[in-house]
């Protein structure tokens, strides 16, 4: 493993963003500064900007409701933003569950916990489909009864009740039963956002992939390590992570001692003469 002295810039920025979003929502209920009202399902910023979770709105539509304008407008704004910056930017930069599962993953590796259940990383799409079918079949937004993402987020501003049990369950599941179990395998919210960002502009690129010395640090740190292999190792693939499962967290950028990674666009090409490659 190659040691790296510099600060993990993107990690710090990301934690900063997660805290900032929380602070914005908490400023109202805790200090009376109502910049934002609501929660991630729907929020109104400065009494002006509506933002709706398109996933919950989709379930409402399937349940047979025709929403009013603000909910639709908010969903359109959110959908366009994430379609541009990458759907799972929500996961890495916004979602309140991420710090919980990141902590579980960190602790798991520190404690050397290995093994556990085997579930396909595609299971989340199965669960996503299940939540949509359930909305259609029950006429109710069924997933919202148990969704740990909104239970945690809403709980912080409107009172937790027993919501902490769901959060603890996710934490213990990731810690004991499955590495990156929730966010990496099961969460239908993340699955939805990955589909939303399928063609996103902002992507992690590998402009200096030729410099890779196979230390595997990026694979170790990435919550979705499957997304890295092809663009890093396969010369026939353009040097950019196009998999929608990449959360654009930037951990690979931080960790790579050879500066292989950088934020870029999905149109990233190999440098014309492979400039980074040392002449033979």
């Amino acid at each position: 493993m190659s040691a790296r002295a510099s600060v993990p810039k993107w990690l710090l920025l990301r934690r900063g963003a997660q805290l900032a979003f929380l602070a914005l929502f908490l400023a109202g209920p805790w200090f009376g500064f109502w910049i934002v009202k609501g929660n991630y399902n729907y929020s109104l910023t400065l009494d002006l900007l509506p933002l709706t979770d398109p996933y919950v709105l989709l379930q409402s539509l399937l349940a047979g409701h025709r929403p009013e304008r603000n909910a639709l407008l908010g969903a359109a704004i959110v959908a366009v933003c994430y379609a541009l910056v990458g759907g799972r930017v929500f996961c890495a930069w916004v979602c309140p569950v991420n710090p919980v599962t990141d902590l579980a993953a960190w602790l798991r590796s520190r404690l050397g916990i290995k093994g556990g259940a085997h579930v396909s990383r595609h299971a989340r799409f199965g669960l996503l489909a299940m939540t949509l079918v359930l909305a259609l079949a029950t006429g109710s937004i069924a997933w919202e009864f148990v969704n740990p993402v909104s239970l945690l987020h809403r709980g912080l501003f409107f009172g937790f009740g027993l919501a902490w049990t769901a959060v603890l369950a996710v934490f213990l599941f990731d810690l004991v039963f499955m590495n990156r179990g929730w966010c990496g395998h099961l969460c239908p919210v993340g699955a939805f956002y990955s589909l939303l960002g399928h063609r996103s502009l902002l992507r992690v690129a590998l402009p200096r992939r030729a410099a890779c010395d196979d230390c595997n640090d990026c694979f170790a740190v990435c919550p979705e390590p499957l997304v890295i292999r092809a663009p890093l190792k396969d010369a026939g693939v353009r040097p950019v992570i196009l998999s929608p499962q990449c959360t654009n967290c930037g951990r690979c950028i931080d960790v790579c001692a050879k500066d292989v990674f950088a934020f870029g666009t999905r149109f990233q090409h190999s440098p014309p003469l492979d400039a980074c490659q040392a002449p033979k």
């Binding site: 109202g28 109502w34 009202k37 609501g38 929660n39 399902n41 729907y42 929020s43 109104l44 709706t52 979770d53 919950v56 709105l57 409402s60 349940a63 047979g64 409701h65 929403p67 909910a71 909305a135 006429g139 109710s140 937004i141 919202e144 909104s150 809403r154 501003f157 409107f158």
Partner: peptide, 17 residues
């Protein structure tokens, strides 16, 4: 009630206002 559970997106704006 049946329609409400499909329509309300659990945002709490009504509670706030």
């Amino acid at each position: 009630e049946q329609d409400f559970l499909g329509a309300c997106i659990r945002c709490g704006l009504c509670v706030r206002d």
